[in-house]
Amino acid sequence: MTSVPVEYYLALAGLMFAVGTVGVLVRRNAIVIFMFIELMLNAVNLLFVTFARMHGNLDGQVLVFFVLVVAAAEVTVGLAIIVSIFRRRASADVDDVNLLKW
């Protein structure tokens, strides 16, 4: 099976990671920022799979599995934090959370 050179996969992962970073910097809604963090994690997953193919063993593919688990745990905790912030301030805008106290 002839396949696409790994450079293209690495370029796709790098571009998606950069888009995720810009999204975190630009957007104001906490949930949307969180989704861009997920995009960055996905880009890193693509890197892991690509490097697994380059090295010819499955360690990279196993690491994707671990990233998946950590992302699931992180999303549940992060969304719970956003919900509890929303209950206090009736807003999910990061600019409204400007005091380091209740």
């Binding site: 790994v6 450079e7 690495l10 790098g14 010819g56 063993n57």
Partner: peptide, 23 residues
């Protein structure tokens, strides 16, 4: 920067079973 590093890192893989091993 990321695309450049990715492009350069292709040559950094030394040893390993190569891309046919996954298949």
């Amino acid at each position: 920067a990321l695309v450049y590093v990715g492009y350069r890192s292709v040559n950094l893989v030394v040893g390993g079973a190569g891309s046919g091993a996954i298949e």
